[in-house]
């Protein structure tokens, strides 16, 4: 079932952030959500994740679905290492070895037994991506997941994300049209 956003409204302190927003995200596909800054993309993502409530309107197709996410900030447990961070949320059947393999697949090395606070921004971002992908989910929401990655690394990570999310419903918030092309994703814009 597709995810349908129907007439969603949300305001903060009297300022309308979402104004009658309606859109759809195809089931089992990657959809990129684009729009200028301040158009409410993150607010919409937060409402979809159940972190905020809409003032009015509703979302169909998310009931009972498990959500995984890459947040705008990494939101990692700073004093834990990458593997421990991923272990915290990942599927129970995944081993430490499998986590290492996934981290290596996107070029992460020299991360072992180090708190994530000591990793660079790009490394932390990739840890957050692997964490989201190894969690149990039906819908994956990613808020600017590739920010801070250089072009080559971005290509590599996008390839990995595409492979890992085959057949899954993925919503990616981005400002970058190249990312949409690389992902071969559907595009939804917020005006």
């Amino acid at each position: 079932m597709d995810i349908k956003v129907v007439n969603l409204n949300k305001s903060f302190n009297g300022q309308q952030v979402l104004n009658n927003v309606s859109m759809a995200f195809k089931n089992g596909k990657i959809t990129c959500l684009m729009g200028a800054s301040g158009k409410g993309k993150t607010t919409l993502a937060n409402i979809m994740m159940g972190l905020q409530k809409a003032d009015s309107g509703h979302i169909e197709g998310l009931q009972g679905k498990k959500i995984s996410a890459v947040f705008q900030e990494d939101r990692l447990i700073e004093h834990w290492d990458a593997v421990k961070n991923i272990f915290l949320v990942c599927r129970k059947d995944f081993t430490e070895d499998y986590i290492h393999k996934n981290l290596n697949k996107i070029g992460l090395t020299d991360y072992e037994k180090k708190p994530v606070s000591s990793l660079s921004g790009g490394m932390r971002r990739r840890v957050a991506i692997v964490r989201a992908l190894l969690a149990e989910y039906d819908v994956l929401i990613m808020d600017e997941p590739f920010k801070g990655l250089d072009f080559e690394l971005k290509k590599q990570v996008i390839g990995y994300v595409k492979k890992m999310t085959e057949g899954k419903t993925v919503i990616i918030i981005t400002h970058d049209k190249d990312e949409v092309e690389m992902l071969k994703a559907d595009l939804v814009t917020m005006n």
């Binding site: 090395t109 180090k114 000591s118 990793l119 660079s120 590599q156």
Partner: peptide, 12 residues
């Protein structure tokens, strides 16, 4: 495969 080393000092 692009490899990157830890950017910040570990402080260990």
């Amino acid at each position: 495969m692009k490899k990157e080393k830890a950017g910040r000092k570990s402080g260990h």
